[in-house]
Design a protein around this nucleic acid. Structure first.
Lengths: 341, 341
DNA sequence: CTGAAAGCGCTTACAG
DNA sequence: CTGAAAGCGCTTACAG
C-alpha cells in the first residue's frame, strides 16, 4: 500500500488526494473507485467511499470537466418560462436527468434568434454532455454551433423524417386539423383561427386548420388573426371582441393556445356572449386552469411530461453511446372535449 | 516580442495559447487583456481582442474556475417554476445578471428541504460567485452550507432586521393586514382566509389577517382553511364551495394567492354566487390573468421584477466587494382594488 | 487490479 | 507594463 505524499492545499477544500490519503490508496484508484469503474477491488471501493463520506468530499466539477473534457451538465433551451407548457416539460426533463446524475442548465430564448445564439455559444463553452432544444427553427449559426460541438442533441415538441436528427414530439398539424374537424362536426362553419406568438408550432397548427376548412369548403382567410404579440389572456379577450364586432357571423374561435382561449372565455362572460350556444371556443395544450373555466375549455392535451421524459431517456442513451431505437418519437396528443364547444 | 512555444492541443479547441501566439504576446498577457485588466497596454489589448475574435476564441469556464477558484456563475434557488411569481422574479434576475456577465444556474426546490439541501451541495461544488435563495426558512444544514461556502448570498421575498443578512423583499404581514383591513372597511365582517402551500410567506400573511380581524373583534379561527396542498385553481374552487356550504354567512374570502382566488371566482360563476355583492373575493400577488377575471380580482401587487433587479444589484455589489447601502431592502407592495371586493 | 506521469486550459503570485 | 513558473483538482493514457 503506497501512501500518496500530500501537500495541503491553500484552499480549505477537501480534495481527492485527501480521500486517497485517508483511504490509503493512490489518487487514481480513489478517482476510479468513486466513479464506479469496475476495475477496482470491492474492498478498496468500500474504503474509498467511507473515506470520502467521512471527509465530506465533493468532487470539483470544474477539475473534472477540464481533465475529462466533458461534464455532467445538460443544457436545455426553451422559448419561455411564462408558458406553463415549457415549465411542465422542464420539470419532467429535470427530474429524469437529475436522477441519472446530470445537472440541468436552463436557457430561455424568448423566441429570439440572437438570444439562442448567445446562450448556445455561452453554454457550449461549458462542454455540456447533452443538449435539449425546442423545435427545429433556428439560425444557421445555431445549427452550426450545435453540429460542430459534437454534443448529442434532442429536439423537443416536433417530429422529423430526417434520420440524422433526434426528436420527441407530435404532429402539430394533425392536432390543429383534428380540432378544426371537431368544430366542423359540431356544426360550426365560420371558424376563426386566433393566434399569437407565431412560432413554428403555431404555424403548423394553422396549416392543419386550413386543410380542414378547405376540405370542408369553409375556408375564409379573413377569419385568421395572426398576431406576433406574446400570448396572454388579455390578448385572447381582445381577439374575441374583434370577431364579435367585425365578423358577427363567426360561430367558433380556435385559439392556438389555452391562455388566449381562457381570455376569450372570460371576455365572452363579460360581454354576455353565450358559449358554446352562440360561439364555440377551443384552445390548445390543456394548460392549468382550462378545466376550471366557465364553461370548461375544449382543447388539445399535449403530453409534455411524456415529451420531457422521453427526450431525457433518448438523450441519456445518446450520451452513453447506446443504441436509440427511433430517432423520432411521436407521443401523440388528445382532444379533450369539454363544454366550450 | 516573445513568441510562446506552442504544442497544438489534442482537442480541436482554440485556447488562450492560440490567441497569444496569433497576437504575438505571452499567454498571461493575453489572459489579462481579455479580462480587461488595466495593466495591459492599449495596443496589446486591441491586438489580443482582434486575434481572439478572429480565431473564435471562447474561454473555457472550467479551466477558469479551476485556476481562479471562482466562477461567473450565480445560483438561484426558487421553490417552484409553476408559480408565475417566481418566473417573473427569475426573468428579472437573469436579465440583470447576464447583462453583468454572469450565468444563472436555476434550482427548483419544490418547497422540499431535502431538495434544497441536495441542490445546494451540488451547486456549491461549482464554486458559484453568488447565491440567491428564497426566504429564510431552511434547514440548519442548508444555512451551514451557505455560510461555510463563503459565497455572497441574497435572500429574496422577505426583509430582516439581522444586519448580517442580505435580503430584498417586503413585509408579507403588513400586506396581509392591509388587505384584511380593506375588506373590513368595505363592510365585510365574516372574512375567511383560504390558504394553500403554507410556506413561511403565506404564514406571515395569515398573521396580518389575524391581527386585523382581532383588532376589529371579528376573528373566527373556524374561517381559516390552511391546506398544505399545492396551490391551484381547482383547490380555490373547492375552498369556495366549502365556505358556501358550511359557513353561508361568510361575506369575504381572502385567498393567500391569486391562482386560488381565480379558481374561487370561477367557482362562484359556476354556482351563481354574486361577486362581490354576495361574497367578496380577494387574492395576493396580482398574477397574470387576475385583471381579466370576471369580475376582475382585487389583490396585492407584489413587485417581483423590482425584487429580482434589486437583489441582482445587491449581489453584484457583494460579489465585487463593493459597499452595500442597506442590508435589507424593502420594495413595498400595492393594494390593487378591482371589482371583486 | 493498481500506480506514476502528464496534461486539461487557465490564473495567481512572483519577478523584472 | 510584461513574462516564466507553478498550480488549481481532476482524469487519461501508459505501465506493470
Amino acid at each position: 500500500m503506497t501512501i500518496v505524499s500530500r501537500k495541503s492545499r491553500a484552499s480549505g477544500r477537501v480534495t481527492l488526494d485527501d480521500v486517497a490519503l485517508s483511504a490509503g490508496v493512490s489518487r487514481i484508484t480513489a478517482s476510479r473507485a468513486l466513479r464506479g469503474e469496475r476495475s477496482v477491488g470491492a474492498d478498496l471501493v468500500a474504503r474509498v467511499a467511507a473515506a470520502a463520506s467521512a471527509l465530506g468530499y465533493v468532487p470539483d466539477p470544474a477539475a473534472r470537466a477540464l481533465a475529462s473534457a466533458r461534464s455532467h451538465t445538460v443544457v436545455v433551451l426553451i422559448p419561455l418560462l411564462s408558458n406553463n407548457l415549457f415549465v411542465d416539460l422542464l420539470e419532467a426533463v429535470q427530474r429524469s436527468l437529475r436522477a441519472a446524475g446530470y445537472q440541468v442548465l436552463i436557457g430561455v430564448t424568448h423566441y429570439q434568434a440572437e438570444e439562442e445564439e448567445a446562450l448556445l455559444a455561452d453554454y457550449l463553452a461549458h462542454r455540456p454532455a447533452g443538449l435539449l432544444v425546442t423545435g427545429f427553427d433556428r439560425t444557421a449559426r445555431c445549427r452550426d454551433l450545435i453540429a460542430r460541438s459534437g454534443v448529442p442533441c434532442v429536439h423537443l415538441m416536433e417530429t422529423s423524417d430526417d434520420p440524422s436528427v433526434y426528436c420527441v414530439g407530435f404532429s402539430q398539424t394533425d392536432a390543429g386539423r383534428s380540432m378544426t374537424e371537431h368544430l366542423l362536426q359540431t356544426g360550426r362553419r365560420r371558424i376563426a383561427f386566433a393566434a399569437a406568438q407565431l412560432d413554428p408550432r403555431v404555424q403548423q397548427r394553422l396549416v392543419g386548420y386550413r386543410e380542414a376548412l378547405m376540405a370542408a369548403g369553409c375556408y375564409d382567410p379573413a377569419l385568421e388573426w395572426l398576431s406576433a404579440q406574446p400570448s396572454s389572456l388579455a390578448l385572447g379577450g381582445q381577439m374575441l371582441e374583434h370577431y364579435v364586432e367585425k365578423y358577427p357571423d363567426v360561430d367558433a374561435i380556435f385559439y392556438c393556445n389555452d391562455d388566449l382561449a381562457q381570455g376569450g372565455l372570460l371576455a365572452a362572460l363579460r360581454l354576455g356572449i353565450a358559449v358554446p350556444r352562440q360561439l364555440a371556443i377551443a384552445g390548445f395544450n390543456d394548460l392549468a386552469g382550462s378545466d376550471q373555466m366557465w364553461p370548461p375549455l375544449t382543447t388539445i392535451r399535449t403530453p409534455r411530461v411524456k415529451i420531457g421524459e422521453s427526450a431525457a431517456t433518448m438523450l441519456l442513451q445518446l450520451m452513453r453511446d447506446e443504441a436509440v431505437e427511433e430517432h423520432s418519437v411521436n407521443v401523440g396528443w388528445q382532444l379533450v372535449k369539454r363544454q366550450s364547444t
